[in-house]
Amino acid sequence: MSANTGVLKRRKQRIVVVLSILLVIFGILIYEGLTNSIEYFETASQAVANRQTLGTSDFRIEGNVIGNTIRRKNDQTLFSISSGKTVVPVVSNGSPPQLFQPGIPVVLVGHFASGKGPGGTALLFLSSQIMIKHTNQYIAAHPNRVKIVKS
């Protein structure tokens, strides 16, 4: 019987260890979730409206890439994003992801530039990372392909 209680005790210890590890992971997840802000991004128009409070601190900005604004300059990619009527010019370091293209919604990590232009503060977003925000809309690229297989 004593051997049996020993086994039970060891099993309980093992479960307690597993639960404590899970509790630590739980804490890390909640901490990361809250500090990364539960609102993942600000739309470009929200960001421009909050520009005073945002200052030059890092945040995520969302908007659609405007068609003919994409330009490459050395290692940098220059383009503008829009949301509603607001347009924000962007300078991004590094190469953008594969799906980056005119019209696609993106989320950019970075901050507003502090540089002052002749006409007051120039609006410019310095981005360190580009993420593509896919919507829930899917569009078949080659509808013919289905017909071929069916026939």
């Binding site: 909640i30 979730g33 990364n36 993942y40 953008p96 580009i130 993420m131 593509i132 896919h134």
Partner: peptide
């Protein structure tokens, strides 16, 4: 699609939390 393996958005973070809860 996005270009990242993981990011701390609400959906992703809460799904990871869900896994921890059910393993517990």
């Amino acid at each position: 699609t996005w270009g990242v393996w993981w990011t701390w958005d609400a959906r992703l973070t809460l799904t990871a939390v869900l896994l921890v809860l059910y393993v517990a």
